[in-house]
Design a protein around this nucleic acid. Sequence first.
DNA 1: CTTCTAGTTTATAATAATTCTAAACTATAA
DNA 2: TTATAGTTTAGAATTATTATAAACTAGAAG
Lengths: 136, 136
Amino acid sequence: MKQKKAIVNKLRSSGLRPTKQRVLIAQNLFERDKTFHFTVETLNKEINKKGSEKVSLATVYNTVEAFTKAGHIKQILTSKSKSYFDTNIKSHHHFYDEDSKELTDINYNQVKLSKVPQPPKGKKIKNLEVVIRLQK
Amino acid sequence: MKQKKAIVNKLRSSGLRPTKQRVLIAQNLFERDKTFHFTVETLNKEINKKGSEKVSLATVYNTVEAFTKAGHIKQILTSKSKSYFDTNIKSHHHFYDEDSKELTDINYNQVKLSKVPQPPKGKKIKNLEVVIRLQK
DNA sequence: CTTCTAGTTTATAATAATTCTAAACTATAA
DNA sequence: TTATAGTTTAGAATTATTATAAACTAGAAG
């Protein structure tokens, strides 16, 4: 609550109107000690639990998309039909446990890329991600 | 057609009964000069086009799953809700073009990982993939 | 402060990919 | 030849996501 002004600025500075819903979601996502992973489903549950004012699922989708475009969160590559997002936007990579479907961050200094290809002409690299899939 | 015996063996050796449908799909996937990418949708279209005997969509799904488990094809990580597969099972990586939704192979020697983390206890690395997302 | 409007939210419907179901079929072991 | 476990099938069900269009609202302009 105390950092509401900071949240509002964060939204404004990326061209997003600080609506009641966006501020609520942003507080939930960013006023934490640690970054974390979520899906729209889990975020929606979290946002709409107990007491708090209700936010529609469509808005949660819209907001997640808006925050992703603004670079406040990033989308994680998995091969499954559910999208995962991460509040940690620093360059880092993931373990994806095939058995439990869980994602874990890999500390960026645990992976070293010593060679990366040139992007095709007219295109630039938006994001580079290493996903290590785990099995028992 | 000529390599039917090889296809049948390939299936048998991975514990898959060489049914009419599986052989047909395997021929389509593996009797090619070059490896390629596909989705269940594109494969289904290809398999069920003109003249040829029809294979149900459910079977295409089942077969793709079976071939993936057997390691004959591999599933590619993207963040979208459509799964991509690749008949190239050698270690290699991908460009994923956000605008066109196209996947392109990156030759394995274009990417070099000089450091890879230890998998958590009790787990082993099934697969490691670098996905480079492109934008205009 | 009021008014205006573009941007936003909402419930709901629509779409798309995938998985499930249970009955019919078939490869193959005996 | 027969029995049966594995496989195929059409269609229904499920799940995630996107679209729609009406109601609402932040904030600019007066």
